[in-house]
Design a protein around this nucleic acid. Structure first.
Lengths: 233, 233
DNA sequence: ACATCAGGTGATCGTTCGGTTACATCGTTT
DNA sequence: AAACGATGTAACCGAACGATCACCTGATGT
C-alpha cells in the first residue's frame, strides 16, 4: 500500500522542515518546494496526492499557485494564511482550496486537516480494514477472515485481494493488477500470471470457487470485486 | 497517569533551564544533569523515560554517554548538535541515538521530536505494564516476567519486545524494526540482524520457540506481536 | 456446428525467505 | 590477562512461495 505524498510549500525552510517532519510522522511521504515556481513544477512532475501551500511565497504567490493547480488537476490543496480574517475574504475568491489553516497552528491540527481533506475527496487510502459481508480484510494485521475464520494468504494473494477490495465495484484489467500488485510493466508478464493467482485466491476465499461471489470476472476486461449479493437467475 | 520523565543534559545551565521549562509545559517531568558523569549516574538512579543529550559536555562527552546508555538500557536518546553537517556523519557512527536535533532549534520542534521518539520506540507507555497471557512487561523496572518468573533480557531484546508489544496486532517490517529498535537506516544492516535477535528473544520468552505464540511471523512482511488466541482451522 | 479465444485448472520447478547454527568482535568484569 | 556476555555477520537448510507450462472448459461468432 503506497504512502500518500504531500507537497509542502513555504518560503521558510524551517517551517517546511517542521511540517514535513510532522506529516512524515503521520505516515505520509513529504515533498518540498520553496517558491511558487518550484511548487508548480513539482506538482506537474511528481503528482503529489495533496498540497499544503503557504499564501505568501516568492515568484508566484500562493493564491495564484492554488488556482493553477486546481485548474489543471484534481489534487486537493490546503492553504496556510496568517490572518484569520483573511480566510473569509479568500474563501470568496473561489480559488478552490479545500481547506484553510491559519498560522500559527498546532501540528496535530494540520495533520488532522490533511487527513480530513483526503478522506473527503476520496483520495484516502489509509483505510485499515475492509469488511464486506462475511469477508474482512485487516491491513494492519495482514489478516483475512472469512465467516470469522482465519484465512491464510500469501503476500501476493493478500495484495491482490487488497487491491480488488479497495476498488470494489470497479473492474481492474490484468495490466492494472500487474502494475499495482506486482509493480510489473505489462511486458514483464502475461495474463496467465494473474489468472493463476486469481484462481488460488478464489480457492481460499470463495465458498464455491467455481461459482465466485466475491471476485467476479468480466469477460474481455478483467476482474471486479463485488460486495453485493447477486441474485441468481 | 504517570508523567513521563525526561533527563536533560547540557553544560550550559541556561540551556538546561529553557529545555526543562519547555518540556514541563508539555507535560513532562524534567530531570537535569550538567556533565557526562552526572548524566550516567542519573540514568542509572532515576531511570528516566528518555534522555535529551548535548554532544559537547564535560567529563565524558555526549557520544560516549549515548553509547553507554544504549548499551546498558533501552532508554531512547535524542542528541543535540551544533552543525547540521555533523548529523549525517554522526548517524553513521551507530551510536544508536533515536533522533538528532541541531542547535538552534525551536522549542516546539524539540517537544515534537521527544514525543515522536517516545511514540516510535514504543516507550511511550504512560501505561507502565503490558500483560499478555503469561507474559508481563514492566517498563518502569525494565523487567519481563514469564509465568511469574523473571526473564533476563538484553537492552536490544527489551526494546525489540517493547516495540512489538506496544504495537500489538500490527505487523512491523524488518526495516521498521531496524529504524525503531536500532535507529538504523535500512542500508546500515540487513534482515539477518533482525532475524537473529527475534530468534534470541523467542528462545527466552516463547514456551515453544519453534511454535511461537507471542511473536508471530508474517511471511514476506514482518513480525507481529499477538495477544489473542488464534483458532486454527 | 465448428472454430476460436478468454479464462480456469492442475502440476512442476526454480527461487526466496525465514529459522537455525556457528563464529568473529567488542567491552566489561574478574 | 582471561573469561564472559552482548552484539553483529555469514553460511546453510528446508519449507513455502511464485512463475510458467500444458491442458481443459465454456462462451462467442460466423
Amino acid at each position: 500500500m503506497r504512502k500518500l505524498r504531500v507537497l509542502v510549500v513555504d518560503d521558510e525552510p524551517q517551517m517546511v522542515g517542521i511540517i514535513a517532519y510532522v506529516l512524515e510522522q503521520e505516515g505520509f511521504e513529504a515533498l518540498t518546494a520553496y517558491d511558487g515556481e518550484q511548487a508548480l513544477l513539482k506538482v506537474a512532475g511528481e503528482r503529489p496526492d495533496i498540497v499544503v501551500l503557504d499564501a505568501v511565497i516568492p515568484k508566484i504567490d500562493g493564491f495564484e499557485v492554488c488556482r493553477r493547480i486546481r485548474q489543471q488537476t484534481a489534487i486537493p490543496v490546503i492553504m496556510l494564511t496568517v490572518k484569520r480574517e483573511e480566510v473569509d475574504r479568500i474563501r470568496g475568491l473561489e480559488l478552490g482550496a479545500d481547506d484553510y489553516v491559519t498560522k500559527p497552528f498546532s501540528h496535530q491540527e494540520l495533520a488532522l486537516r490533511v487527513k480530513a481533506v483526503l478522506r473527503r475527496t476520496g483520495m484516502d487510502r489509509t483505510q485499515e480494514r475492509i469488511v464486506s459481508g462475511e469477508l474482512s480484510i485487516d491491513f494492519q494485521r495482514y489478516q483475512v477472515t472469512l465467516c470469522d475464520q482465519l484465512v491464510d494468504l500469501t503476500p501476493i494473494e493478500f495484495r491482490l485481494l487488497g487491491c480488488l477490495a479497495s476498488n470494489a465495484g470497479r473492474v481492474l484489467t490484468w495490466q492494472a493488477l500487474l502494475k499495482e500488485v506486482w509493480s510489473y510493466e505489462e511486458w514483464q508478464a502475461g495474463p496467465e500470471l494473474v489468472k493463476v493467482h486469481i484462481r488460488r485466491l478464489r480457492k481460499k476465499i470463495e465458498l464455491a470457487p467455481s461459482g465466485p461471489r466475491l471476485i467476479l470476472t468480466v469477460r474481455g476486461v478483467g476482474y471486479r470485486f463485488c460486495n453485493q449479493i447477486v441474485t441468481e437467475p
